[in-house]
Design a protein around this nucleic acid. Sequence first.
DNA 1: CTACCTGCAAAAAGTTTGCAGGACA
DNA 2: TGTCCTGCAAACTTTTTGCAGGTAG
Lengths: 138, 138
Amino acid sequence: MTQERSIIVEEVFADHEHFEADELVARLSVAKGSRRASRATVYRTLGQLVDSGLLRKVARPNDREVYEHDYGYPQHDHLICKDCGELIEFQNDKISAIVEKFAAEIGFRIQDHRLEVYGLCANCSRPKKNRNRKLDRI
Amino acid sequence: MTQERSIIVEEVFADHEHFEADELVARLSVAKGSRRASRATVYRTLGQLVDSGLLRKVARPNDREVYEHDYGYPQHDHLICKDCGELIEFQNDKISAIVEKFAAEIGFRIQDHRLEVYGLCANCSRPKKNRNRKLDRI
DNA sequence: CTACCTGCAAAAAGTTTGCAGGACA
DNA sequence: TGTCCTGCAAACTTTTTGCAGGTAG
C-alpha cells in the first residue's frame, strides 16, 4: 500500500458517484497537500480495483469507460441520457432471472452483465429545455 | 451512390453475421474484380448505415465495436463468451417491458438499449477444452 | 535489501479527419 | 460543372507499457 494508492482509493470512495478515469486523473494531478498521483498510476490502480471486485465498469457513453463501486452494492443497471450523460441506476431482479434461465438452457455460464438503456432523461426530453440547449451550442 | 458504397453495402449484407469494422476493412482492402474500398471510406459508410438505421452497434467485447443488421430484425440481446468471443443472440420481450415500465415512471424516454451478458459459452466452459486452450497459447 | 511501485514519455489500438484529386449526376 | 466522395496519411482519444529511479516493509 503506497501513498499514491491510498490517495486514489480515498478519492474513489469519497462518494458513491459514477466517474471516468480521465476525470479522476484530473482531480488527482493537482497536488492535495503534497499528495498526488500520475495518470499511469491511476489507470494501473483502477485496473486492480476492478480485478479485486471493489469497482466495476458500467458503461461507455462517450468512448470512455465509466466506473462505479461494486463492493457491497446490489446488482443494478443504468439508464443513460444521450443528451446530458446522466446515469440513472435501476434495480432488476427479474431481468437477471430471465437471462439466467436462458443461459442455463444453452449451457452458458454467466459471469456478469451490463444493461445500458439509452434515451433522454426527464429533464432533457422537455421540448423547451432542448431548444435552449441547442441554441446555447451555436 | 458510389462504387465504394455499393461494394461495402454488398459485403455487409451478404450474410447476417456480426462483424467488426476492422475485419470488414480487411476483406475490402483486397480488390474484388477491381472493386475495393479504403479504411476511411469503410468507417464513413458504416457510420452512415448506423445513422440510417440499417446497422447497429451491439457490443464491444475486445475494444472493437461489433455491428449487426438492424433493419427488419427483431429486437434481441447478446450473450458474449469471454473466452472465444462468440456472440449468441437471444430474444427478450419481457426485459423490454420491465425497462419500459421503469422508464415511464421517471419520465425517461427510451431510444434503445443494449444488454451484454458476459461469461463462458457451453464450449469454453468445459474444463478439458479449457485446459487445452490454455496450453495451446503457450 | 529486494521486490514492487511510480512517473514520464512514448507506444498502441481503434477511429476520425484535412486535404488534394476524382467520380457522380 | 458543381458537389459530394475517396484515399492517403496524419491526427486524435483513451489506455497501456518500457524504463530508470524511488519507496515499502
